Structures are given as structure tokens and as C-alpha cells.
Amino acid sequence: MSAYPTIEGDVPFAAPNSGRPCSTWYKVVGDLEKSIPLIALHGGPGAGHEYLASFTDLIDQYHVPIVFYDQIGCGRSTHLRDKMRDESFWTFDLFIAELDNLIDHLQLRSKGFYLLGQSWGGMLAGMYAARRPEGLKKLVIAGSPASFPLFVEGGKRLRAQLPADIQKILEEGDRTGNLETPEYERASAIFYARHVCRVDPLPQPVQQAFINLKDDPTAYNTMQGPSEIVVDGSLKDWDGSEQAKNINVDTLLLNGRYDEVSELCVEPWFRSIPRIKWVVFENSSHMAHWEERERFMQLVGTFLTSY
């Protein structure tokens, strides 16, 4: 990223009921003065910005500057480990307030901005766009469920395609809650290699996302649960398809053919958002921005810069 103009900073953020001063770390790569920027919303929650590093391809090819940031609770932003399983704290409203705060700090309202959310970040981006915020020009939702019950159902179908011995290990771990045995971790790794990222070895920035989640799983455990496979957090009953009907900007919807976020839980976005195009990456799972990087950037870049 160092080949481009880069600004890093911390924005004070008054997180409701946090009981302490908080801040959001951000990095702008590229020239904000020259073009409308893309704000990248990472997944998790808690995965951090690093695994979205490939988005800087858009600067060279399409002259789109990128705003990266670590959402509260991870990376270089304020951590709140004492809020584990505090479902009243870790909410969409919290993360939407943080995003609004960052946009205002960077003075992007009049200039305008694009949003791209990946995984959990796409859920957040969708719910933010549904409020019709001032300045939002276009929206990209990548590998994001519109419905968590459908995400769980799709996950069950994917697990049913795994070898029988792997299924048995995963089921036993789910039943006992013991998810840290070597057997369970090995079985999970097989699921992840099929349905999270099919690049081998994993790109270092993607590895960093898993490091971030292990370092501070507070938001992830509270909202999702202990793993991608075991979902018992506050999002388990969430469905955003009704709110998505309020999205009034052009939207690009993306997922991979082998994505843990299967067509089953992506389709409600397509059904609900009025102006939307849906593209499935045939050789990708959950991270097409690495698995089919060139095509991903071409689709996103063309979408953002064509009017």
C-alpha cells in the first residue's frame, strides 16, 4: 500500500454505554481530493481491515481511493473485552454510529462516497444504506447473508457434503461445545479451505483476519458465536431483507459459487433491493477479492466508475 499517498489517524468515537473514551483507527490510501472514495467495511465482526488489502488494485486501475478502518473492538481501534456477550452493546446501531462518525470526520458528505462491505461488513453496509445516508453514491455487498437463519441453513447443507468422518467430528464439537480440540480444528480447517478461502497457502492478510479474531473475539462471539459453523450469538435470528427495500442507490451483489454465504441467504438481497445486479464468482468461495482478484476488481471498478 505504500506506493500510494497514505494517511492514518484515530477518530474519537463516543460509543454509547462504553464507559470510556473510544477511538476508531483509519487509513486513507490514494488521493481523497481527486476522486470519490470507497469505504471498505470488514467482516467478522472483529476481523480487521488487513484482509481487504487487495482493494488497493482499484486505485491504479480505476483511480478510486480507499478508506480502510478497524471497527470498534478490533485491530487498532478501541477494544472492549469486558463487553463479552453484552448483546445490548454490540448492535448495528453501534457500528452505524461509528461509520457516520468516520464519514463526518473525513468530510465526505458533500463529496460523496461508495461503500463496499464484505461478509459481516456487507450486512452492516446494507443496513446503513437502508437509512439513506447523505453522500452515499453506490453500494457493493460481497459475501454477505441477508438472513442469518438462511445462512445457518445453507451452512448445514454445505457440511452435509463433507466426508462423513469430518461431519461427525464437527457435530461432536457442536454438541459438547469443545471447539478447541486438534480434531475439531482440523475438521474446521477442511470446511474453511472449501468455503472461506480456496487460495493455498492463505494470503498473509487473510491470515491476519484470523489472528485478529483470536486476539479479541468479543464482538464476534457476542454477535455470531464461537465459530463460522456454530452460530448462537445475537445475529442468529437477524433478517435484513425488509429494511433492504429502503436502499435507494445502485447496488452490486457478489458471492462465490462455493461461498459459506450461499445463494440461499444472498438471494433475499437481490429480491429486496430495487436497483441491483448479482454476480456469482464460479471459482471462489468467501473471498473472491483474493480467489478471483482480477475479475473482482474489474467488476467492482467498472460498477463504481460508470454512470
Rank of each mutant, 00 (worst) to 15 (best):
M223R: 15
A209H: 08
S227M: 05
A244T: 04
N255G: 10
G256A: 08
N283Y: 15
D216K: 09
T218C: 14
N248F: 00
I229G: 08
P226H: 10
F210N: 07
L253G: 05
R275Y: 03
P205R: 07
D216N: 15
W278G: 07
E267P: 00
N221D: 15
A219P: 14
N283W: 12
W290G: 14
E242H: 07
Q224E: 09
A288K: 07
V196T: 07
S285H: 13
K277H: 13
E260D: 12
N246A: 14
P203W: 07
V280M: 12
L202V: 06
D239S: 04
S227D: 09
G233F: 03
T222L: 12
A288E: 11
T218S: 14
D200L: 07
V230R: 10
C265T: 13
V206N: 04
M287P: 04
L235P: 01
K245M: 03
F210P: 03
M287R: 13
F270Y: 10
N221V: 04
V266M: 03
R271T: 15
V249K: 01
R275C: 02
L264A: 03
H195I: 05
V279R: 05
G240C: 05
E242Q: 08
V261F: 03
R271D: 13
H286R: 13
N246C: 04
K236G: 00
S234I: 04
Y220C: 09
P226E: 07
V279A: 03
A288I: 03
P274Q: 11
D232V: 13
N221H: 15
D215F: 09
D237N: 14
S227I: 02
M287T: 15
D239V: 03
E242R: 07
P274D: 07
W269F: 11
N283V: 06
R198D: 04
N255I: 09
C265E: 01
Y220Q: 12
V280D: 06
W238L: 10
H289C: 12
N246E: 09
N212R: 09
S262C: 10
I276Q: 05
L235K: 00
Y258R: 08
L253N: 05
M223P: 04
I247N: 00
I273S: 00
C197L: 10
V249G: 01
P274F: 03
R257A: 15
W278I: 07
Q243C: 01
P205L: 06
K214I: 06
E228V: 08
L264P: 07
R275L: 02
E242P: 00
N246P: 03
V231Q: 10
Q208V: 11
L235Q: 01
V196H: 08
D232L: 02
R271P: 01
G225E: 11
F270Q: 06
F281A: 14
E263D: 14
E260P: 00
